[in-house]
Each structure stands twice: as structure tokens, then as C-alpha cells.
């Protein structure tokens, strides 16, 4: 077969030991499905193997893996939504996840559904902010953009999410908006 990657199995095992839980947890958070998360875990590590030279140069591999995992999972979420739409259009029984939120599972489904429908640049930032609990300055450093840009995109994300929920006839619990009492120094 083809040339083997310039990395051996022991090194890959070590990377799984250090970062496997991180990647799997993040994939599970975004994909909301254990089996999908397992597949994503493997796909991320295939990318690590294929870009092992780049990976070894990273001073903070976790940051690199966060971005790879996020974008890969968001692509999967979108692909799955397109497949559902395509299948639904030809009469398949597949149904989109209803955008409602009354408990933890429903909240996860709501977030998952929103991520599938909103632009990738907004969805990526939303994951960092709402799932990973980063503050805006941290996301700005990660993506190499200004903090104002991050705040602006987050507001766009929330506005579009509210519109989607309104179109679906779902009233989000707890109200929407931008709390002004809690502050992060970001």
C-alpha cells in the first residue's frame, strides 16, 4: 500500500492517552451522539497522523486540537442536516431535531440544531463560548481576531438563533438577550 506516516503506533498511543479524552468529549458535546463522537475522534487522529510534523511543532497542542475538532464536527453536523433534508425531500422518514429546550437532553438537541443551521464562523465561536466556556478575549486569541469581532459575531449568533426559534414557534426559557450585570474582564 502507500507510504506509512512518519509516526509509530507507540507515539500515537501516547497522543491518545494525553488528548483522546479531550477530543472525544468535545466531539460528543457538538455532535450529541456517542457513535458519531467515536468516529470523529478517529478522524481527528487520522488528521494528526497526516499532519504529524505540524502537530509536533505546536507549543499548545490542545489549542490545535480544539480547532480541528470543532471544525470537523461542525462539518459533520452540517452534512448530517443536508442528508436529513435530502432524505426528507424524497419521502424518507428522517426528521430534523425539533428546536425545543426543556431539559439537558433537549438543550443539547437545541444547540446541535442551531449549530447545523447557522453560518460556520458564527457556529464555531458559539461552540467556544457556550460549550467550552471561553471568554471573548480567549476566543479572540485562539482565532487571531479582535475581541470586538468576537462579541459582534456572538451577538449575530444569538440574534439568528432567536429568529430560528421564533420561526419554529418555540419560546426559549429564561428569556433572551444580553445580560449586563455579569461581567468578564476579557
Amino acid at each position: 500500500m502507500g507510504r506509512p506516516p512518519s509516526v509509530d503506533r507507540a507515539e500515537i498511543e501516547g497522543l491518545y492517552r494525553s488528548y483522546g479524552a479531550l477530543v472525544r468529549r468535545r466531539a460528543r458535546s457538538i455532535l450529541n451522539d456517542d457513535r458519531e463522537a467515536e468516529d470523529a475522534l478517529q478522524e481527528v487522529f487520522v488528521r494528526v497522523i497526516k499532519s504529524v510534523a505540524d502537530f509536533r511543532r505546536q507549543s499548545q497542542p490542545s489549542t490545535w486540537l480544539y480547532r480541528i475538532t470543532t471544525n470537523l464536527c461542525l462539518n459533520r453536523v452540517r452534512d448530517a442536516r443536508r442528508r436529513r433534508a435530502r432524505l426528507a425531500s424524497v419521502g424518507d422518514s428522517a426528521k430534523a431535531i425539533p428546536p425545543t429546550a426543556t431539559g439537558p437532553a433537549e438543550t443539547a438537541a437545541t444547540v446541535h440544531n442551531l449549530l447545523a443551521q447557522l453560518p460556520q464562523d458564527l457556529a464555531e465561536i458559539a461552540v467556544y463560548y457556550f460549550v467550552d466556556e471561553m471568554d471573548q478575549a480567549e476566543i479572540a486569541r485562539l482565532l487571531g481576531v479582535s475581541r470586538r469581532t468576537i462579541g459582534y459575531r456572538l451577538e449575530r449568533f444569538v440574534a439568528q438563533a432567536r429568529q430560528l426559534l421564533a420561526e419554529a414557534g418555540v419560546a426559549p426559557p429564561g428569556g433572551l438577550g444580553v445580560p449586563k450585570t455579569e461581567g468578564e474582564s476579557g
Partner: peptide
């Protein structure tokens, strides 16, 4: 500068309480 805390529709509040 935009506000630093933004609520996600349908999701619980973030756990972060301070800087």
C-alpha cells in the same frame, strides 16, 4: 465593545461567574 456575556437561547447560563 460588545457586552461580554451573551445568552444562548434555550441553553442554561454559563458557569463562569467572574474574570
Amino acid at each position: 465593545d460588545p457586552p461580554n456575556d451573551i445568552a444562548l437561547p434555550g441553553a442554561p447560563a454559563r458557569r463562569r461567574l467572574g474574570p
